[in-house]
Each structure stands twice: as structure tokens, then as C-alpha cells.
Nucleic acid binder design. Structure first.
Lengths: 208, 208
DNA sequence: CCATGTGAACAAATTCACAGCA
DNA sequence: TGCTGTGAATTTGTTCACATGG
């Protein structure tokens, strides 16, 4: 039942985790694995692994399990990881810089191609090999670098306005780190990472 | 129906968002709000807001809505935000430093009290007013600072071992930024923030 | 009268359990 | 035989719609 229709975000996130696990197993020299063994090793659910994988076609071999190499290739291409995705980091405060450095090694799939900031003191500098431009140049930068994804690491006040600018500039996806709900056209997929919310969730479990 | 039983993580995260929205409304000088208006302003669902709130008791006034001030207080105490939570940041690479700075202002609820790193070059330094200790001192640091939460910003290889150390040292919750599934006693609530997974989710939507 | 609080309907996600195939 | 792929059962989450009560 190969399909390209709607995949649940939960399933999608798990596929990333499976992929990471499979890469780890490949590093260890393993060739094949069953859903059960994968589940045991990485604390996942075997049935769910099978369901998640089966929605895209029959990747496994009955009675045997999954061929690690070929499953990785299939997942890579399924998730769109078989080509480079260029990223701009908007807001070069300490978090923007940290994320830029974090992805620096990552040459293959996700590559940071530029930083943007409104602080003239930062514009013109470089973070490693990544140049920092003025945020007013967002249009030109997106066009000239071919950036698809913006990582937003701005104060919450300016996040929405900058999203609007990014949308106009033709950015195709946004990963937001500002602690606000941003609103963009549904054609631009957006994910938020909200450290405050995570901390508050943990705090709940610490009520005396 | 006041209760302290299991609250779903989804509901819990929404409560944080409601709280943030309510604080914003209070800043704007508003005194009362209905679930519908809150939903409209912040792109939430009115019915869900009511369900999420009602599971802890009757906070609203029928025919009127919710008193913003008192709802904030109730949620604060419900989520355990009415007292200080001390945090240690384990791994003072650029992400650890960025998170430390990010929470620096935040004096009330979440306070970073120390950083830990294995790099002797970093030990003894300060990030703002936060001292950096050697990771081998985790036991003493947790005890002396009374830290409850650890934010893990380490390379994936060392994350699990450090979690074990943290657990032994008596840490009570972990927010993990390393791209691995960590495994700790279920009595220690753990959340992971996985930038790689989020980027891969976005990449999926960009498949040409 | 109007918005909450809630049971009942609906939808989504996960687990179960087994038929079917290598 | 042993593991995948998958319907059916179950659990979990959300929306609906209305009785309730300030």
C-alpha cells in the first residue's frame, strides 16, 4: 500500500528516530534487524515500528526482518533527506550562534548558509564560515542562497513580523525557537521548540 | 472534580500555552476572558481550553468567563510554578551557554545555578554570574545548590553515562538536548528536545 | 441570558493478535 | 518456523452540543 498521503506528525517523528537507530546499528556493522529487536534496543514498540514503516510499502522480509542498509536508503528518500536543505538562522544571539555551530559539521543534509540579525554590530561578522547579514536583506539572502528553512531565534516581540517577511521572501519552512505561537500560511510548515513549555512540564512533576 | 491524577502531557503543554496567553492579556490590562475569546486570539480551541481547565476544578464563572488574575495564580500553583526551580546545565558548549543566558533574566521560577563541563579549560569560568564546575563534581554541585532539573547539552556519546551520574546525584528531572534516547528511572521525568528530528520533519514537507 | 462544565459522539493513535509469506 | 503486514479491539484525545448555574 505505497502512498504519499497524509502522514501523522507523530509517525513522522518516530521515523526520524528509527532512522537514527538504524544508522547506529549500521555503524556497529549489523546487516539485518527485526522490529522486535529494534524495539528492545531503543525502547520503542515493535508493532508501531511495523505500522509506521508499512504505511509506505513493504520494506521488510517476512520471517527475517529488515535489511538495514536498504531501509535507511528508503527512509532517507522518503523523508526527503537525500538532498541538501539550506538553512538561514534569523537572530544571531547566543542561541542562533549555538544552533549555527551545532549544524556546522552537518554537511550532508542540513546546511546553514547564512545568519541574519538586526544588530549592525553583528552584521558582516562570520560564525565559522557562515556570514551574518542584515535582517532587512532577507529577500536577497533567501533568493541568492536558495535557503528553504529558517530557524527563528529572535525575541518574541519581533518573531511574527519576521515570519511575515520570511514568507514574503519565499522561505518554505520555519523552525521557531521564540516563545510565541507564530501564524503563517498553511503552505509553510512550521514547528516550534519551546524550552519554557518543556521546563513547565517538568515542574509539574516536581510539585511536592 | 478536583484531582491530582494523571494529566496527559498534551494537556499539560497546552496549559503552559494558556498561561502564557493569559499573562499577555494581563499585561494588556484585561481582567476577564471567555474560552472563546482566548481561543480566537491565540488560535486555540475553546472546548479544549474548557476541558483542560475543568479537569482541575471549576475555575470559571458561568455566563461570564474566567478571571484572568485568579486563573493565572491557580495555573501557576497547579503547574508548580509558584516556587523557584534550580537548574544545572550539563555541557557548556555553545548550546549550554546559550541556554544559560536565555534563562538568565528569568529570576522567578527557573534559575540556572551552575554549569558543568568536563573541559578543564571551561571549569572555573563564569557565564554571567553562573559558575562552571567540573562534571566530576556533579554530586557535590547538586547537593550544595539544591538543583532539581538538569539540562543536558552534551555530545550524544556521553549523554547516557552523565544521566546515570545525575540520577545518582539525586537530580529530579532532566531536559535532554542531546540527539539520543536516554533511559532513566521512571521516577525522574525526562523530556527531549531534538532539533534534528524537527528539521527532518520539515524536510519531509519539502520533498519536491 | 450567556459562557462554563460535561456526557456523548467522534477521531486519532496505539496495541493486539493472527493470517500470510519467505 | 518466525517475522512482517494488517484488520480488529482498545485506548487516548478532541469536538459537539446542551444542561446547568451564576
Amino acid at each position: 500500500m505505497p502512498s504519499t498521503s497524509a502522514v501523522s506528525p507523530l509517525s513522522l517523528n518516530r521515523l526520524s528516530l528509527y532512522l537514527r537507530s538504524l544508522r547506529e546499528l549500521r555503524r556497529q556493522g549489523l546487516k539485518r534487524i527485526s522490529s522486535q529487536e529494534l524495539a528492545d534496543r531503543f525502547h520503542l514498540s515493535a508493532a508501531l515500528i511495523r505500522k509506521d514503516l508499512a504505511q509506505f510499502g513493504e520494506f521488510g522480509i517476512r520471517g527475517i526482518g529488515y535489511e538495514i542498509d536498504s531501509l535507511i536508503s528508503r527512509l532517507d528518500s522518503l523523508l526527503g533527506l537525500d538532498r541538501e536543505h539550506r538553512i538561514i538562522v534569523v537572530g544571531m544571539g547566543s542561541l542562533g550562534v549555538a544552533l549555527t555551530r551545532y549544524l556546522e559539521g552537518n554537511r550532508g543534509t542540513f546546511r546553514v548558509v547564512a545568519g541574519l540579525d538586526e544588530d549592525k554590530g553583528k552584521v558582516g561578522k562570520q560564525i565559522g564560515r557562515i556570514p551574518v547579514h542584515d535582517v532587512s536583506e532577507v529577500d536577497r539572502v533567501v533568493r541568492e542562497t536558495g535557503a528553504e528553512i529558517a530557524m527563528l531565534t529572535l525575541p518574541p516581540e519581533s518573531a511574527q513580523a519576521t515570519c511575515d517577511d520570511l514568507a514574503r521572501a519565499g522561505i518554505r519552512a520555519i523552525l521557531n525557537f521564540a516563545p510565541v505561537q507564530i501564524q503563517v500560511a498553511p503552505s509553510i510548515p512550521t514547528k516550534s521548540v519551546d524550552v519554557q513549555v518543556h521546563l513547565e512540564e517538568l515542574a509539574f512533576f516536581l510539585r511536592a
